[in-house]
């Protein structure tokens, strides 16, 4: 299990798989794993471990 935005959920192999499963638009988010920002180019090669705390911040348009 991992913690996504404060809630437990099933672990996926990679960060990208998790983001796709949760329907995040990868060009509109910032992602932290255990407090470390993950570059967009690394989403696919970033593997997840049990207990990882993942924060996904989504941006919406307007300003």
């Amino acid at each position: 299990m991992i913690i996504l935005n404060g809630e437990s959920c099933e672990k996926t192999d990679t960060l990208l798989a998790l983001l796709n499963e949760k329907n995040y638009r990868t060009d509109r988010i910032a992602v932290e794993i255990n407090g470390v920002i993950i570059k967009k180019a690394d989403y696919e090669k970033t593997t997840l471990n049990d207990g990882d705390k993942i924060e996904v911040v989504s941006f919406v348009g307007g300003g």
């Binding site: 060009d27 509109r28 910032a30 920002i37 967009k40 941006f59 348009g61 300003g63």
Partner: peptide, 18 residues
């Protein structure tokens, strides 16, 4: 960050933090 498009907001935040 005071852009209007979501993609530009995400890009700037990601770049600054990384």
């Amino acid at each position: 960050e005071a852009f209007d498009k979501a993609e530009n907001k995400a890009m700037l935040v990601n770049c600054i933090l990384s």
